[in-house]
Amino acid sequence: MARLGINQYGKAETHLVRVVRDGDAHVVRDLLVSVALSGALEAVHLEGDNSAVLATDTQKNTVYAFAKEHGVGTPEAFATLLARHFVGGAITQARVEVREVAWERLGDHAFTQASSEQRVAVVIASADETWFASGLGGLVVLKTTDSEFHGFPRDRYTTLKETSDRVLATEVAARWRHDGTASFEDARGALLECFAAHHSLSLQQTLYAMGSAVLEACPTVAEIRLSMPNKHHFVVDLSPFGLENPNEVFHADDRPYGLIEGAVVRDDAPDPGPIWAAYPLV
């Protein structure tokens, strides 16, 4: 015998570009919107009965129509508007994720996309409650000193040399859970300021320091989850060419890489319940 387990469905990565034409200087908003709906959907899986299924094409069209009718606002506001709209009838929970990439202005109506960084908002709505998470991805940071790594166990397979001065680089992905009022700019600023100022003995230590800095800067953030791959930079041996290399020339190796992930939680943070617990780390 078998039974239906946890399930959801929705329209993933609807690519929305909204141009705001108020005045001579235009504004470009570039969003990827993903919707996931769950609820009383046993009949469609077990019997092929589509009477409770809001077509994913309708979900896509709703995203575009809402962008015109309501504007986009912040990613959190747009995600909230959509999530609450989709809850009703057989749909008891809606999760909307919005990812935004920024376009930098070259003129009144010309732009360039100069960064891979994305701003992220996740809103999960039910009939009675709404959960909020904000975050970012693709934020590449690097420091040329103030980073060490030593004191780790050594065995017959260890070749890595200990160092008290190395390049530290990573691509930060983060999600912070809050009550809907946390400032994205304050949280992002805290991450960057801490990375720049922190003397790192390991990427794990830096992750914890950066998460703690966000909790300090944003009182309404209950928890932040971070994923930070170690973008390794190895000093090139130039001795065969009669050259010294005092940490000036590096080989940047993109694979394989260490992947450091963790959460920093406020001591008095409310229990997020099973919805947040089931959400991926980032």
Rank of each mutant, 00 (worst) to 15 (best):
A121T: 07
A12C: 08
A169H: 00
A2R: 14
Y208K: 15
D254R: 11
S147P: 03
D271I: 04
P256S: 09
A182D: 01
T14C: 11
G180F: 03
G48V: 07
A252R: 14
A77D: 06
R95M: 06
A222C: 11
G242A: 10
L201S: 09
F66I: 03
T74F: 01
L106V: 03
T158K: 09
V172F: 01
G10L: 03
G88A: 12
V96D: 02
I275Q: 07
R105Q: 12
E244F: 10
M210L: 12
E42H: 14
T206N: 12
D24M: 05
D155C: 10
T158P: 09
P153W: 04
I6Y: 04
A209F: 03
A209N: 12
S164Q: 14
G211Y: 00
D179I: 02
T220V: 01
R177P: 00
G88E: 11
H85Q: 15
G189C: 06
V63R: 03
V236G: 04
T62N: 13
P240C: 10
R99N: 10
R21K: 15
R255V: 12
F86S: 03
W176I: 05
R154N: 10
R166G: 02
S239L: 13
D24R: 13
S183Q: 10
A263K: 11
A169Y: 00
I260Y: 00
V98E: 04
L31M: 09
F86E: 03
D108R: 13
T14Q: 08
V19P: 08
A187H: 03
Q59I: 06
L203G: 03
E104K: 15
R156F: 06
V249T: 14
V96W: 00
V53D: 04
A114P: 06
D179V: 05
F234N: 08
E129S: 14
Q59T: 09
D57F: 08
T56S: 11
G211E: 01
G23L: 09
G39S: 11
A114E: 11
I275G: 00
G135S: 13
T112I: 13
R18K: 15
T130N: 05
Q59P: 07
V122K: 00
G88V: 09
G89Q: 12
N247S: 14
A263I: 02
S38C: 13
F250C: 08
E223Y: 04
S115I: 03
S202Y: 04
T145H: 10
H233K: 06
L243G: 07
S126A: 05
T92C: 04
H109N: 15
M1Q: 12
T58D: 15
V141Q: 05
F111Y: 14
R119V: 15
V20T: 15
R154G: 02
S147H: 03
L41R: 05
H109E: 12
E171W: 01
